[in-house]
Amino acid sequence: MTYEGVPGLVETKEGYGETTLIVDPARLREACFYLRDEEGFNFLSDVTAADYLGWPQTKEAVAGYKGSAAGRNINSPGSWGLARLPEPRPSRFCMNYHLLAVPAGTRVRVQAWVEDGDPVQSVVNVWPTADWHEREAFDMMGIPFEGHPNLRRILMDDDWEGHPLRKDYPIGGEPVRFSGDE
């Protein structure tokens, strides 16, 4: 199956038996409408934001994980060597939309790559189920969605600081809420 007609299509990738369509973030909603109406992807299974800050290519240290091609860095406990450096990533954040066509059963992954703070077009009016998925991506990764009717935090408190699933957010990194100064 080819997806050449998808608006804003940048690249099509195959891997592990899964098809990935990388689309231009500026035309994401248009592409989603096309996939829903023309290709029959009526079911949005999942929306995931992934943070690639410190992806081994950049050789920057990330809490608990330091990868280098040469192998373990003996001056840095807890580091592991990689057999080879992974493919570079085009930008920091990746939005993944896992689509499914019912009842045909085909699946496809739509990806849009954005930098920190770049707005991503909301797909709530394409698939209503995206509502909470996008709120979660906003809450956990700080992706600002454009055109979402109710973009608020969903899992964390409304006044929470930071976005916990970002790679620069330390594990167990909760601010001290009631210190002696208050």
């Binding site: 992934a50 943070d51 992806w55 081994p56 608990g64 994980y65 990689l82």
Partner: peptide, 10 residues
Amino acid sequence: SGGPKPWRVK
């Protein structure tokens, strides 16, 4: 990422 830990799990 090819390492011993998952990069992202959702």
